[in-house]
């Protein structure tokens, strides 16, 4: 069964009197435990698509099922609960909460979804920080660590709720090349260990090389699909 199933997905924005068709009818399926990249130039619709999949926005038409739920029909509160339980996010600007320590940032989504006891939460956070190699920075605040470290913390935070899907919009855009590869490698290894589906957007061709499945979007339409798992395109 597919983790994500999109059928004729369209999204239209209104900027004043101007109508902008960001997505013009996308259909695709993504299986669990995939490492998928959406590539395309700026303005092609990658971020819009990730926002729809992440229940942060609603499609104008078409259907979108994520983890068996028709997410287009979810209300504000239910959408938040669904995201908390099923989806992790990694943002281009890291978006860590500055008043919380590294460990608390990772723990934050667990507190918000009222997950498990304090002890369990702390154990899970410790495990995630170890997995992303940030155990020794646990008590530091975001302002005290580097960009690469922040993104590793963001990956750990995205995985805190044991989501089935992690969405990463341009996760390496603000990182140097070496750090970018480290983050992608980290995501990839976590995907293998935890069987989490990673879906990320990028326009960096070298980063794209790391993806198992690549969708190319141009002008709101899917223009290409490449499945590298079996050497098929």
């Amino acid at each position: 069964m597919s983790l994500i199933e999109a059928r004729d997905l369209k999204k239209t924005y209104h900027a004043g009197d101007v109508e902008v068709q960001a997505l013009k009818g996308l259909s695709f399926e993504i299986e669990p435990a995939s490492f998928v990249s959406f590539v395309g130039p700026s303005g092609s619709g990658k971020t819009t698509l990730l926002n729809l999949v992440g229940c942060l926005d609603k499609p104008t038409s078409g259907s979108l099922h994520v983890a068996g739920t028709e997410v287009a029909s979810l209300g504000r509160a239910d959408g938040a609960t669904f995201r908390g339980n099923n989806i992790g996010f990694v943002f281009q600007d890291f978006n860590l909460i500055p008043v919380l320590t590294v460990a608390e940032n990772v723990e934050y989504p667990l507190m918000m979804i009222d997950c498990c006891s304090g002890r369990e939460r702390r154990e899970r956070v410790a495990g995630l920080l170890e997995a992303v190699g940030m155990s020794d920075q646990a008590k530091k605040f975001p302002g005290q660590i580097s960009g690469g470290q922040k993104q590793r913390v963001a990956v750990a935070r995205a995985l805190a709720g044991n989501p089935r899907l992690v969405l990463a919009d341009e996760p390496t855009a603000n990182l140097d090349h070496e750090t970018a590869f480290m983050v992608i490698d980290l995501m990839k290894s976590l995907k293998e260990k935890r069987e989490t589906t990673f879906l990320f957007s990028t326009h960096d061709p070298k980063i794209v090389e790391e993806a198992e499945i690549v969708y190319t979007i141009e002008d709101g339409l899917l223009k290409g699909f490449e499945d590298r798992r079996n050497g098929n395109g």
């Binding site: 509160a77 934050y108 995205a158």
Partner: peptide, 16 residues
């Protein structure tokens, strides 16, 4: 605002 957007995105319900 950006921080509020982030905490909402990662699953914080409006009531919280």
């Amino acid at each position: 605002v950006k921080e509020i957007g982030t905490i909402a995105a990662i699953g914080t319900r409006p009531g919280k």
